[in-house]
Design a protein around this nucleic acid. Structure first.
Lengths: 200, 200
DNA sequence: GCTTGATATGAACGCCCGTTCATATAGCAT
DNA sequence: ATGCTATATGAACGGGCGTTCATATCAAGC
């Protein structure tokens, strides 16, 4: 049977995407079979190939659209003029985005090694572009004299790791909690890059 | 043929361990087959079962001995009396250990989801024990009034993530470089937990 | 020198994998 | 009503998986 009521391309495709996203995030790319994904959607394994070339293409689409969404979301952020304000915006943006889409984020840095070399190159470029945003903000702050770090590159990596780490332990618990989370992290970041004691 | 010259239990077993460690770290537990591990050692797949009950037991041993080694290595560190000095010691210890044994560390936090529930519980307990070390040091520093953080638990998680993140980008490049790495990271940590500007 | 036990083989087991394809159905255009 | 096309099935493909086991070989103990 085909074309059941309400089963069009626009419905099944995203359902496959969502199922793959959740399963890959939970069990890892290599540990999830096409049949498991299909079962989650309520379809046979062969149907997946109507929408994705193969398993690798499915993973790549998840990671690629995630990186595009992430970069686009940052572009949409309205930034203050001052360097420190921009770093504050980045910190809060990064945490908010990572808390909102934990599965995408998790896959994006966990399954890099599951990509074919060509696909890896594409994702890696976008990943570096994102890191570059923070790195440039730090450089700008340094030029303005408002921040003071020993090594911009190392600070960038340290901050990214620290902020992304939220993903490993924090789970959404209401809007207020996330607001506090962002505030606390910005407090730590600000100290790290300015050395200034921030008022309680 | 069996018992080739120089092929005893004391030789083959660790060779299997080492091969599994490297392959799991590189490709992930689920993506590596027993035959691949055996081939790396120059043995047939069946031989692995003379030393390990199954694939899961092999992974568990890697993770369990890693956690034991990590905790034991920390116990062996001679600590200063002051809280800040202890936090400095922890920071340098953590980085040094992670830089020295990147594969063990990588597996230990990457393959938690590949463990059976019972094995996971064991590793998780040890992982929490390790985090607890840092958490207690922060609490002690707070009691002494030498450190000032808004939330000890969140600071602990942020620091662990930041320090462990070294593993994702740093590759051994001589002893001096690592010394500098430790110094820079301690500089960032100290600022984060004291808010003090450290002299260049 | 013979026996014994540790060490390894390699074939085999049943199972699941990613992927393909002939076939069938369901909704749309005519 | 009829044909067309998008959508899905389900069986099949070759292959690799984790694991077991009868068998063989080697080193050491008597």
């Amino acid at each position: 049977m085909a074309r059941k009521s309400g089963s069009h391309s626009e419905i099944t495709r995203p359902r496959i995407r969502d199922a793959a996203l959740r399963l890959f995030a939970r069990h890892g790319f290599a540990a999830v079979s096409m049949r498991q994904i299909a079962a989650e959607v309520g379809v046979q394994a062969g149907a997946i190939y109507l929408y994705f070339e193969d398993k690798q293409a499915l993973l790549f689409e998840l990671m690629d659209t995630h990186m595009d969404d992430l970069l686009a979301a940052w572009e949409a952020v309205v930034l203050p003029e001052d360097a420190l304000g921009r770093l504050r915006a980045f910190t809060r943006f990064h945490i908010a985005y990572h808390v909102e889409r934990p599965d995408d984020v998790f896959i994006a840095y966990m399954e890099l090694r599951s990509l074919t070399p060509g696909n890896f190159a594409v994702i890696e470029t976008k990943r570096r572009a994102y890191e570059r945003i923070l790195e440039d903000l730090l450089e700008a702050g340094r030029a303005d004299g408002v921040i003071d770090v020993e090594d911009v590159r190392i600070t960038t990596m340290a901050l990214i790791a620290m902020l992304t780490g939220v993903n490993t332990w924090y789970r959404e618990g209401g809007r207020l909690a996330r607001e506090r989370l962002e505030r606390i992290y910005w407090g730590m970041v600000e100290r790290m890059i300015t050395g200034a004691r921030v008022p309680a």
